[in-house]
Computed example of a mutant assay.
Amino acid sequence: SYIPPKAEKLYALFQELIDRTNLKKSPDNAYEFFLQSAANQFFWDGNKRTGQLMMNGLLLESGHLPVSIPARSQLQYNQAMTRFYNTGL
């Protein structure tokens, strides 16, 4: 039942997200970038993949290990993402 923001709001939301996550390189900001990318659907396709790529770049840049979702955890990952979408941003 989740509905992403309207297309005309995406540029401003993306710019705010970039500004906010660049203020301080931290794991929390990297995770936020991923979740907001997935939820706001900035791109036509591949929002979670693109968000995860950016998250991992931010993590590596701040000296942390990247995140990878193993195939055996795919169901748990999908359920967690569904809860995220359904509980609001």
Rank of each mutant, 00 (worst) to 15 (best):
G51Y: 03
L35H: 05
G88M: 11
L53T: 13
P66C: 06
S26A: 11
L53G: 15
Q74G: 02
M81D: 03
P27W: 07
Q76G: 13
I69Y: 06
I3T: 15
P66L: 06
Y31C: 06
Q76V: 15
E16L: 00
L65G: 15
N22W: 02
G88P: 08
Y85C: 07
S1M: 10
N22L: 05
G57I: 13
F14H: 09
Y85Q: 10
L59V: 04
Q74H: 12
F43S: 06
T50K: 12
E61H: 10
E61W: 09
L13F: 08
T50R: 13
N56G: 02
A39K: 07
A71S: 11
Q52E: 04
R20K: 07
L89A: 10
L13S: 11
P4M: 08
P66Y: 05
N47K: 03
Q79N: 12
Q15I: 00
S26E: 14
L60S: 05
N40A: 01
M54P: 02
Q36K: 10
Y2C: 11
Y77K: 09
Q79R: 08
E61D: 14
E16I: 00
A71Y: 09
D45M: 09
Q52G: 02
R72S: 13
K9N: 05
T50I: 09
L17T: 11
N22A: 06
L58Y: 08
I3H: 14
N78P: 01
D45I: 13
K48E: 01
D28G: 11
Y31F: 09
P70K: 05
A80F: 04
Q76H: 14
N86H: 14
P70A: 07
H64K: 15
T87C: 10
N29G: 15
V67H: 04
A12S: 12
N22I: 01
S62R: 09
T50D: 01
L13V: 13
F84K: 06
Q15N: 07
N22V: 00
L10S: 01
M55P: 01
I3S: 15
S1A: 10
S73I: 02
S68R: 12
A7F: 07
S62K: 11
A38I: 00
E16A: 04
S37T: 02
F84H: 12
G88N: 10
L58D: 01
A38D: 00
N47C: 03
V67L: 12
Q15K: 15
G57N: 09
D45T: 11
A30T: 00
N56Y: 03
Q74C: 05
A7N: 07
Q79Y: 04
E8Y: 03
L53R: 14
R83H: 10
L13P: 12
S37M: 09
L60F: 01
Y77G: 00
G57E: 06
L10H: 05
K24Y: 07
Y85R: 12
G51P: 03
S73T: 01
I18D: 02
F33S: 05
P5G: 11
K25E: 04
W44K: 08
Y31K: 05
D45H: 11
I3M: 12
T82M: 09
D19P: 04
Q52W: 00
N56V: 00
Y31T: 11
S37R: 01
F42Y: 10
T21E: 11
